[in-house]
Write a protein that binds this DNA or RNA. Structure first.
Lengths: 292, 292
DNA sequence: AGCTCTTATGAATCATTGA
DNA sequence: GTCAATGATTCATAAGAGC
């Protein structure tokens, strides 16, 4: 299978026009946050953030397949001692564009930046807003299962009679359990909170996220051969991860230095000396990098 | 010092009129979420939630001191496959009332509800919205400091284990004192993410949040002798914790059964046979319970 | 007392069925 | 059609019972 990586240099709004409608399975991106990263992206004023983003999200709606998902990693900054509201306004505006705000995942940043302020603590979480076009969309929950808690080992050693049948909650809450269902299980489904450290080895790019972040969502919302888009590519983390996981990917970047850096890192198709047992390198893959 | 606990039976909107303006240091509450807890509270339709809450938050603004804080524990439910937006709309509307949306703390519920759905995972976090009247407000950050890093926690756990086994063989080894000394050295400020399990009580009444939740914010935003208000008292967790921590408190509850239960649990002022070294019982305190 | 094992339980959500 | 009621599904924790 050929794993394609298409890179576009230029403004996100114009470059998105070059992408086919309904061709993307997952959009995962971390757009420049309001007024931050001024030295790199110029910075968008918080008051203008929604107006700036809406044309982009409108086009993203078109390029996404009906079964696809859009994961937006964002967090409002503090302005004048208050949390700004542009993220909430953005959600409300995107719903008017037709997006469904399906879920809000939480990224708990285990090692967030140190710091001390008189009126707040360190901010150690970010939003991962999950938008979809339809109520039914592709989700491969089994791909991100996690080991079941330690309690299960002790719990399942001896099953009582109540454990073998369904035990309804006595309060009528509707919950109940059948412990015997869990007998041959060692994995369980995760929750909507992700515990990941922030990337330590910061590249040149100012706002990097750990590779595990796109990896988790790529696993969850795409299968091999699907297409992942990051309209604010930056240092290309999303694309490198997608490539490793044998998904096609598209990256758009406005800053030539980042664009060149990603292109150069992808260009030399190295001989596959990797451990064949590595998860996403089961077989030799042929990579094609299209640079436009 | 007298620690007062004032309980009011009745509708929150009307009962709040009986409370003096600018008399409360901290409002901590968890109002009924939209369309939930229908068996106890009537359940407010999501579309009407903001309109229902705004008169209450307007009055809360008046009773809060300028240096005070309002912590609102809330989470939007899923309606028709989408996260509802009433919480966001509430924040925007409360800002128009004059509230500053200073911060959003995150409660990570370690033992969230079970369940499996095709399009989402279990919801394991809730919002703790922090509103203030002024940009400068009281915050006692030193009161909630935590041991530095995870390595410290693990080491502490190991130490307390050896402490326990040694206690069996050699009583009064004085090992515990060493731990506390060691603890006091490497403390750091926490982040805006709280990791707590939900209360799992097999007793009479259900606390919707664990006592540690109000405890943390009472420590952080009040000092002894200050006043804490919970306009949706429920089983009285906030008030019991405030009382234990030697803060005055006010509770409003519309359901007579809950009101009576809290009243009865507070009424018998027991002789103080508690360990004098207990954290919030350093000296004998005289409690006065006013029931109106 | 201390340990292990058992039991209860919770701000849920979705698909299906019936009115 | 839309809306309401019912059934099915699922963890991790703490209290309590038993040894």
């Amino acid at each position: 299978m050929k794993t394609k990586t298409d890179l576009y240099l230029g403004d996100c709004t114009s470059e998105l026009e070059k992408i086919d409608d309904c061709s993307v399975d997952l959009i995962f991106t971390s757009p420049p946050y309001a007024d931050q990263r001024q030295n790199t992206y110029g910075g968008i004023h918080p008051d203008k953030y929604v107006a700036w983003f809406l044309p982009i999200s409108a086009r993203l709606f078109q390029v996404l397949k009906p079964t696809g998902s859009f994961i937006l990693n964002i967090k409002e900054r503090v302005i004048n001692g208050e949390r700004s509201t542009y993220v909430m306004e953005l959600i409300l505006a995107m719903k008017k564009q037709g997006w469904l705000w399906t879920e809000e995942y939480m990224w708990h940043k285990k090692n967030c930046y140190p710091g001390k302020w008189p009126n707040r603590f360190r901010d150690s979480w970010e939003r991962l807003l999950h938008f979809t076009k339809e109520k039914k969309f592709n989700m491969y929950q089994e791909e991100v299962m996690v080991p079941i808690g330690d309690w299960a080992k002790n719990r399942l050693k001896n099953l009582s009679d109540t454990d073998k049948t369904r035990d309804e909650s006595k309060v009528g809450s509707g919950f109940g359990k059948n412990i015997s269902n869990w007998l041959n299980r060692d994995m369980t489904y995760p929750t909507n909170v992700l515990h990941l450290a922030t990337e330590c080895n910061n590249k040149n790019h100012s706002a990097t996220f750990p590779a595990e972040l796109p990896e988790w969502f790529i696993k969850l919302f795409t299968k091999e051969g699907d297409t992942v888009l990051d309209p604010f590519m930056g240092s290309g983390t999303t694309n490198f991860v997608a490539n490793k996981m044998r998904r096609h990917s598209i990256g758009i970047e406005i800053i030539p230095e980042y664009y060149e850096m990603v292109k150069n890192k992808l260009q030399p198709v190295e001989p596959y000396l990797l451990d064949p047992k590595t998860k996403y390198e089961k077989a030799k893959s042929e990579r094609r990098i299209a640079v436009r």
